[in-house]
């Protein structure tokens, strides 16, 4: 077997730069995903508010039922037909953010529904409106329960973000492919790329476990 890792050594600065772009795209997407997920998750709490519930459910169904790559291409290659030309980076963040928003909304909904019904009753009995009870009583408790699954979502998003390399974004995957295109060393470079992804996801996983342990020690999470 003939393995030659010199292209990887020489390409190290590019790979690191790509990793940085990956972290940027993923973080921005997760932020967008959290905002969207909170709105959509709350909208899906109450089936009796038909229009809001229906719209939110439609969004979740579409996003979860279609490939992320198709969604990204719709934004990047589809929108220009309406003369909407978004920068590649923005397309990537929008696409990944909208995608993760659907999953985050389920995390949000699950966390809110896991809060004992008595909490809402006690808040409303004091005279709080639904919105006040949500904001002051329910959400602060629910957010704590969202942290572990949100971390998993972050890890999944890091991996899924490799797809944005197809939108000309120079992320980790894209930088790897550029090195391969001049060195023809696919196995070595993809192994190196995989390793960097593994480092990123392991780091997030580590931080997450620490956070969980502390929350548990504080008695906030059972």
């Amino acid at each position: 077997m003939d393995l030659d890792f010199t292209p990887v050594w020489h390409g190290w600065p590019e790979l690191l730069h790509g990793a940085l772009v990956t972290v940027e795209v993923t973080s921005a997407s997760l932020l967008l995903g959290c905002v969207l997920g909170l709105l959509i998750g709350v909208a899906r709490l109450e089936p009796r508010r038909r229009i809001i519930y229906g719209a939110a459910t439609g969004y979740v169904t579409f996003i979860r039922g279609t490939p992320l790559l198709v969604q990204l291409f719709l934004l990047f290659f589809g929108l220009p037909q309406f003369n909407i030309l978004l920068p590649a980076f923005l397309c990537g963040v929008l696409g990944l953010g909208i995608y993760s928003g659907a999953y985050v909304s389920e995390i949000v909904r699950g966390a809110i529904q896991s809060i004992d019904r008595g909490q809402m009753e006690a808040a409303r009995s004091l005279g709080m409106s639904y919105g006040q009870a949500m904001r002051i009583i329910i959400l602060p408790q629910a957010v704590v329960r969202m942290i572990p699954p949100l971390g998993n979502e972050f890890i999944a998003l890091i991996k899924n973000s490799a797809l944005v390399s197809l939108l000309t974004i120079t992320d980790l995957m894209h930088e790897g492919q550029k090195i391969i295109s001049v060195s023809y060393r696919s196995l070595e470079v993809y192994l190196a790329v995989a390793l960097v992804y593994l480092v990123l996801t392991s780091f997030v996983g580590f931080v997450l476990r620490r956070a969980e342990t502390r929350l548990r020690a504080g008695g906030v999470v059972q």
Partner: peptide, 24 residues
């Protein structure tokens, strides 16, 4: 309506079997 209901509930104290204190 909700607005009037909230005002009225401010005048009615409720104590539950399961306390329902706000744990946070």
């Amino acid at each position: 309506p909700d607005r009037e209901l909230n005002t009225l509930r401010m005048q009615v104290g409720m104590v539950f079997q399961s306390f329902n204190l706000f744990p946070h």
